[in-house]
Design a protein around this nucleic acid. Structure first.
Lengths: 228, 228, 228, 228
DNA sequence: GATGAATGAGTGTTCATTCAT
DNA sequence: CATGAATGAACACTCATTCAT
């Protein structure tokens, strides 16, 4: 088993366990906590983390401020919980990926990018939020980093395989290339979906352009043939 | 004079003029303002924007708080002034760029990326700062956007030229490709120099990898020949 | 019931409801708020509104600054609350007024003026305060205006009745006369009790003089008979 | 010479001399000071005393802040100078008043009130300003008081004369009556012209109503005859 | 578990006034 | 006389967190 694959097994936790506390056991507790997380997401997405007030969250969740501290040690931890909820969706954005026989290499790459971008789009407000706190707080920086790594590592394994099979330029460092190209897609999605900058065309165009650049960058022949 | 070069003259202002006020006229005023800007840069880079206190800046500049407001309307405007000072360096990072006869296309691309990355490295702390405020304040988001555009536009013109001359894949949209690849390099620099993440190798490796990906992505033949 | 009396039911609110927030529900809250209002009155009367400091109020009320903002949105609102408390006393200064059979017209007028002046005297410091803020802030100007109107309207109804019954000069505009004469009494009270100017004689002399001027001004025969 | 007339000679200075400083001697100085006073009046009337900034005044007068202090010791003193300028107009509002043979008593009274009201109207903004500062600062309270007294004393002499000549009710205290009725007119003018409250009718109606109330209050027979 | 009143440290900003040039 | 840069004290207001009920 290669080191790369070992890393794959070892996906880092997206949420630092030191940020969370035990989940409540009673049904009422579970319900209250859930409403608080939902309220927090609403408020955070609307006002941003810094400009959000705890009272707005508890008002939205229809409970008292004291109750908030029954479930979270701080505002920060509530954000961690919100991001934790989105974690699943971001990491497993769709049906199991893989290089199926009946799919060309390019098609597989495109499917991966599309899945990533669509997941980003679904959670765009949250991603904007994550950028805000990551820019200031190392704890959340770590969160963002881990999320990026999960995407990059998946891509890294692909690149290695493509290199092994003679499709991709073997002179590229697979780790750094995967990181760089993953960052590129992540940043494109950030500008289009989180910041809602225009000029990034349709969803399809974004994915197609990203994929084309990616394919070219990896030196994959356009005709699907092996490099000579 | 070609249209391309004219566009060069027309780079968007990096600092919103509404953020700045008139510069002082007297020598003493100029001196004081300069010391405040320097002090602000020091404090902002050390503490971040939010955690910085006005008194720290004036203490560093050895003047009273009132004097600060002689030159800036707010803490924000002081940051704008600091970023304004770095603007020159970021936009004109080195000797005039261009496609010299005695330089291969690839070498030219690499030189452009290297200049960008080195400028980023020189102002890394400031770039981190810019990310922080851009994540929260649209005014500074605009600043970051403009800076990114200046880099992307330069690259866009290159790509167009390479396409015209038959070096680059003509099926690529030059604007979006330039934006995407510029974001990639910018993000690589951010992680390596601003966040000081390891795993990005040496400065040279970063530039070389970026350039290689770029060259490949644009479909430029490795041997410097024209595409067939 | 005559329209005039209906108007009496419809006295304008002395305190703009937009200035107030919900009263606390718990006993502790009620207690704390009350102590804050009392403290605010003390401090405002002593130092004036502008020169009063929030910390002096909270110190007087023995609570923290934060607690102040649990009950009031601003220093201004605290003043509004203080004035609101005095409202009752100013509007209903004594036993129900009216033109009793066993009271001459003049005696009734004098009773009304006396009640007004005594209420003014009781709240003299507050009236001084109200003049200060009314001179600067339209919100409080409105407050003063409404208070003046309440007094003037009561007087207006009297004048009308006196005119109808043949006691008062029918050529006078009852509204403007009532306003003017009410202002006169109000201003006399302001100078004597709020500013504590001497030269206004005893309390009785002030009331008697005001009443005599009023009676004369309305053209009421001194002997209590009807005008011919 | 009666005591009353002595008081008349002894009109108190409307501006406390301790508030003023020597006037400049050079032509330039006179010009600069004049422009500062004019600018101050403009700014004070526009923004009120408290909300006015010294820099706005000097900007309006097109000079530096330092120059301001060449002519005034403080913002307050500038206001005193502005009010001083209006003093003449307020005290001697028109052609010399007096009880001419060819004017009935009532007409004379009305002329006096009209002159007062018109002077008030001309300086309405300034009067509003005076109310603002008088409500807060005893120095300016004194100023307002003196102005009021000048009006009241003039009226007081009239009342005495009318009483002596058998026109006015001799049982009235002339000083207090004059004060009270003067306050009434002053307050009417304040509400109509300074605060611009509607409901005070036309200028003429205000003066006529005031005069009628006044005449009645003094017990002057409507037909111009002597009291019996 | 839930409540909500109480806490209080922390800081950006204003502007009349001074004084060196 | 004129300038305008420098001064610095003063203060209302926020809001995450605690804890008695």
């Amino acid at each position: 088993m290669s080191k790369t694959e070992e890393q794959g097994e070892d996906l880092p936790a997206l949420v630092d366990p030191t940020l969370t506390r035990d989940l409540p056991s009673t049904p009422r507790g579970i319900r209250t906590r859930a409403s608080l997380v939902a309220a927090a997401r609403t408020v955070f997405e609307r006002d941003g983390f810094i400009d959000s007030r705890l009272t707005d969250i508890t008002k939205e969740a229809q409970c008292s401020t004291g109750t908030f501290y029954t479930y979270f040690d701080s505002k920060e931890e509530a954000l961690a919980a919100v991001l934790h909820e989105a974690q699943e969706d971001m990491l497993h954005p769709g049906p199991p990926q893989g290089h199926h026989k009946d799919r060309s290499v390019v098609e597989s790459l495109e499917a991966g990018n599309r899945a990533y971008v669509e997941a980003y789009k679904r959670n765009a407000k949250l991603m904007l939020l994550l950028e805000q706190v990551a820019a200031v707080d190392p704890k959340f920086r770590r969160l963002r980093l881990d999320r990026g790594r999960a995407f990059a590592q998946r891509n890294c394994r692909w690149i290695k395989k493509l290199q092994d099979e003679g499709f991709a330029d073997p002179s590229l460092d697979p780790v750094m290339s995967a990181s760089a190209l993953s960052l590129m897609v992540g940043r494109m999605a950030y500008f289009k979906y989180a910041l809602e900058e225009p000029d990034w065309g349709t969803d399809d165009l974004l994915v197609e352009t990203a994929t084309k650049l990616w394919v070219n960058a990896l030196g994959i022949p356009a005709d699907g043939s092996r490099r000579t």
